[in-house]
């Protein structure tokens, strides 16, 4: 199966005087979950709107399989915008069939797919209910179905997990995993860093109209590793802070994050001493979370600019 590639190449976009995106580039490969991250106003929604062909870039281009976005034929996109809404007086199945047919599904096929997804998300009983009679959570599930009902080649979800309960979050994750396996391009935009960390293979962090970092999650985490260690024991071990050549970064009730000063005490020695006092529950090389990296990079960029 050949790999599908979506490329955003040197894209810039301004609204009047305000520069929203400046020379933005990244590449998304099929089979990976791509996370488009950034603080509010970073330009995420504009980027997604340009990928969806709702807006056109002032400069640069967006390519899918090497073909410019505007000239693509027969490639289907699915989109769940952050600001969501449906036709309040329409019936669930009618809305889903309408969105399906707009993406070239035959009405009958759209109906079958809609019912299949409604069943999978546990809301089959609302098939003939009017949208305005449904709760917000159920409306959100219907919007999800509308976004991937037609089995798009590229699926873009803006803040997909907001407002969903944990059970439905995992159902959605499951569906997205399946989607990813079908060699499709999947782009998520989210503020929930733990979700991004769990779901994304590749992230691109944008801030103030520019890419701050772009790469696989594991590489980024490695890059921001501080050579720190994390140790968690059964009981408090206060003596650790008095050991020579150790610098405590964070201290919890039974856990510690620390770094070793160069050429001082060895790691094996410290672990030995701790084990003499209490049992070690967990020990690992500490890798920063995406959340920490995100905050650090944004802060750094803001400081540089100011």
């Amino acid at each position: 199966m050949s790999e599908n590639i979506l490329e955003v190449r040197n894209v810039s976009k301004s609204f009047k005087e305000q520069v929203v995106l400046k020379n933005l580039s990244f590449t998304v490969k099929s089979g990976e979950t791509f996370g488009l991250l950034g603080p509010n106003g970073a330009g995420k929604t504009t980027t997604m709107r340009m990928i969806m062909n709702i807006l056109q870039p002032d400069e640069g281009e967006i390519l899918f399989q090497g073909q410019p976005r505007q000239r693509l034929k027969g490639v289907h996109f699915g989109y769940l915008p952050e600001e969501r809404g449906l036709y309040p007086r329409a019936r669930v199945l009618d809305v889903l069939v309408y969105f399906g047919t707009l993406n070239d599904l035959a009405p009958r096929k759209a109906e079958v797919e809609a019912i299949r997804y409604l069943d999978r998300l546990g809301i089959i009983e609302y098939t003939d209910t009017r949208i305005n009679e449904l709760s917000k959570g159920i409306q959100q599930k219907i919007q999800f179905i509308a976004a991937f009902l037609h089995d798009p080649d590229v699926l873009i979800l803006d803040e997909p997990f907001t407002g969903l309960d944990p059970i439905n979050q995992s159902v959605l994750q499951e569906i997205l995993e399946e989607f990813k396996k079908k060699n499709k391009v999947l782009i998520l935009s989210t503020h929930m860093m733990d979700q991004a960390e769990k779901m994304c293979d590749h992230i691109c962090l944008i801030n103030q109209a520019q890419v701050v970092i772009d790469g696989s999650v594991s590489n980024i985490r490695k890059r921001f590793r501080e050579d720190a260690y994390y140790l968690e024991a059964d009981a408090p071990i206060p003596f650790i802070s008095s050991l020579k050549g150790i610098q405590i970064l964070e201290e919890g009730k039974n856990n510690y994050k620390f770094v070793l000063e160069e050429g001082s005490v060895s790691l094996a020695e410290i672990l030995k001493q701790v084990e003499q006092k209490t049992k070690i529950r967990k020990f690992e090389v500490f890798e920063p979370s995406l959340h920490d990296i995100f905050i650090r990079l944004i802060q750094e960029q803001t400081e540089v600019k100011s």
Partner: peptide, 10 residues
């Protein structure tokens, strides 16, 4: 109700 954004993407 923001449906327009989804519609304009299709």
């Amino acid at each position: 109700n923001r449906v327009i954004e989804v519609l304009l993407s299709y």
